[in-house]
Structures are given as C-alpha cells and as structure tokens.
Amino acid sequence: MSTIITKNTTVICRGSKNPSYGHPKVYINTQKDGRCPYCSQEYKYNPKQNKSHE
C-alpha cells in the first residue's frame, strides 16, 4: 500500500470506497502517527500538497 500525501491534518479512513468491504470509519491525525489501525494505510501531511485525499 502506498503512502497518501495530503494537505489535511486530519483524514478519514474507511478501508475501501465501498462501505461493504471496508472497516469502521476512523479519523487519523496526519501530523502524528498517520497510520490506520485497521488497514495500515499510511497518510503523511504536506501543507504544500495541491490535491488532498480522504
């Protein structure tokens, strides 16, 4: 799984775009650990990033 770079300090991870296949919604602080406890997706904060992901 690749790291998602975002300009947001908090992101939501659901594990999948389809809720039937994901995990419970969690809010992740990208300035601290930045890793989802369910699926291990990693998010990194970059305030200069042009496009953000959730």
Rank of each mutant, 00 (worst) to 15 (best):
T3G: 00
S40W: 13
I5T: 11
C39E: 12
D33L: 04
N50I: 11
T3A: 01
N18R: 06
R14V: 08
V26H: 06
Q41Y: 01
S16R: 01
I12D: 01
S20L: 15
Q31W: 02
I28K: 00
R14F: 07
Q41A: 12
Y21W: 15
P47H: 14
K17P: 12
E42M: 06
V11R: 02
T6S: 02
P37V: 01
T9S: 10
P19Y: 13
T3C: 02
K25N: 14
Q49G: 11
Q41N: 07
H23P: 04
E54H: 10
T30D: 03
P24L: 03
D33T: 07
H23I: 03
K17W: 15
P19F: 05
N8W: 06
K17N: 11
K51T: 15
R14Q: 12
T9D: 07
P19S: 12
S16C: 11
H53D: 08
K44M: 10
D33A: 03
I28R: 01
H53V: 06
K25Q: 13
N50E: 15
I28W: 02
T9K: 07
P37F: 00
N8C: 12
E42W: 05
Y43L: 01
D33Q: 13
R35E: 01
C39G: 08
K32G: 12
N18T: 10
C36E: 00
D33W: 06
S52F: 10
S2A: 15
I5D: 04
Q31H: 03
T6G: 01
T10V: 09
Q31E: 10
T6K: 01
S2E: 12
I4A: 07
P37H: 04
N8M: 15
